[in-house]
Amino acid sequence: MTDEVKVSIGKEKYKTEVSINQHHLIADEPTEVGGADLGPKPTAFLLSALGTCKAMTMRMYADQKQWPLESVEISLSSEVVKSTQQQTTYIRCIIKLYGDLDDMQKERILKVGDKCPVQKILSNPIIIESNMLQ
């Protein structure tokens, strides 16, 4: 099933409404750059997509293996480094696994999390095609 994602912005500076199927979210920019800080900025949504996907993938794998994973906490941050030839974005994920897991189980869960669908998308070339309807 493909998600129906719609984004709209009106005259209210930077406040953007996001509809994903039956869910409604607001994105905005912080006040220091002219927004009203009514919701997360777009890059935070990107990081949250990666973090939630990794956490869900880890949970699914541990459940499948019947391993005692109690919870997963992931802190994400990003940094853009520009050079004269290219721009590189570094996304850092600090992961805490809770539960009575041995080192092998923790390492395996971590590796499986790196194979989540969102990380696969972000790790491969991306082509964005924009078309205007008349």
Rank of each mutant, 00 (worst) to 15 (best):
G10Y: 06
G39F: 05
L122Y: 00
Q85N: 12
D100R: 07
E4M: 12
Q22R: 11
V7E: 11
M104S: 15
P68R: 03
P30V: 10
G113E: 00
N21K: 08
G35Q: 07
V18Y: 04
V5H: 01
I9Q: 09
G35F: 07
E17N: 14
S48K: 03
T84M: 06
E129P: 01
F45T: 05
G34T: 06
T43F: 12
R92V: 10
H23D: 09
L69Y: 00
D114I: 02
T43D: 10
M56Q: 08
M1P: 08
P68I: 00
I127S: 12
E12D: 15
N21C: 05
M58Q: 03
G34N: 15
S75H: 13
R92M: 08
S75T: 13
D37S: 09
E4I: 12
T43P: 04
A27E: 01
P68W: 08
E73L: 05
V18T: 03
V18Q: 01
N21G: 00
D102I: 03
S123P: 02
G99S: 00
L122V: 03
P40G: 14
I26V: 14
V72C: 03
N124T: 15
N124S: 14
I95S: 02
V118C: 01
V18H: 04
E70S: 05
C116I: 00
V80P: 04
K106E: 02
E4Q: 14
A27Q: 05
E32T: 13
K54C: 08
E70Y: 01
A36C: 14
E79K: 05
P42C: 03
S123L: 02
L110Q: 02
A27I: 03
G113K: 00
P117E: 11
K82Q: 11
K106Y: 01
E79C: 06
P30G: 07
I9Y: 11
E32Q: 15
A55N: 04
Q134G: 07
T89Q: 11
T52G: 12
E32P: 10
I94A: 11
M1Q: 12
L76Q: 06
I128A: 05
D37W: 04
M1F: 10
P68C: 00
C53E: 05
L101M: 02
K6W: 15
A49K: 10
T2W: 14
S8T: 13
G35R: 06
C93S: 10
E29F: 13
E4F: 12
L122H: 04
E32D: 15
M132W: 15
Y14G: 00
M104D: 15
S8F: 13
P125F: 04
G51R: 01
Q64K: 15
R92G: 08
G99Y: 02
E129T: 14
Y14V: 00
V81C: 07
V112M: 00
V112Y: 01
V7F: 03
S48E: 08
L47Q: 05
P42M: 05
K120Q: 13
S123H: 08
S71E: 06
S75A: 14
G39M: 06
I94R: 13
A62M: 05
L97W: 00
E12Y: 10
V80H: 14
K41Q: 14
V112F: 01
E32R: 15
Q105D: 02
C116F: 06
K54T: 10
S19R: 15
A44P: 08
C93L: 13
I128V: 10
